[in-house]
Amino acid sequence: MIMAQIQQEDRVNLGAKKFSMWIFIFTSFMFFAALTSGFIVYSGQKGHALDVKMPTTFIFSTIVILLSSVTLYMASTAAKKLEWEKQKFLLWVTFALGIVFLVLQIQAWYILTYKMGVYFVGPNASRTFIYVFTGMHLLHILAGLAVVLNAIKGTYGSVTQVKNLYKMEMTSIFWHFLDIIWIYLYVFLLLNQN
């Protein structure tokens, strides 16, 4: 039985596909690295400082996305222990936390725009960069939510355990990466907020 599974895995190259996900993470990382480098070049050239104190909502969203990583990790562990119901539940929790993160980020935009007067369009593009960083990250979050949903779908259908674990691993790589990227962007903004 296990041999058959291994053969099946070889045939559809799950290992190679997982590797592809890692390379995709690299491309995505390069994208954010380019945006932040753009910020450094921009703010360095004419001395446009950010001069915005980051809204506290970002602290909450950071906590939420960290929690979602924890629940996703627990879901993976459950999947490995063949506890599929628990896996399903924890995946749904992860998905819900992802949605909460999304809402909180948009809430932060609202606060930035309407309460703090930091606009997307304005003469100081380093402020625009806040929206670009968070917006581009949110696009990735949307993709991440789709990936989580796909893993959830797997727990409903009759997907093989090999496939289930594969989906969990792909989801984990991508979602934890989104978590790390957010922390990177947030710390970057905090360091440059003056």
Binding site: I23, F26, T27, S28, M30, F31, A33, A34, L35, G38, F120, V121, G122, P123, A125, T128, V132, M136
Partner: peptide, 23 residues
């Protein structure tokens, strides 16, 4: 894989300048 995402970043900012009025 390492270079093209950087072009995308540049193009994204260009699109914001073109169509959304950023600077």
């Amino acid at each position: 894989v390492l270079a093209f995402p950087v072009l995308v970043a540049g193009v994204v900012l260009l699109i914001f300048d073109r169509s959304f009025g950023t600077s």
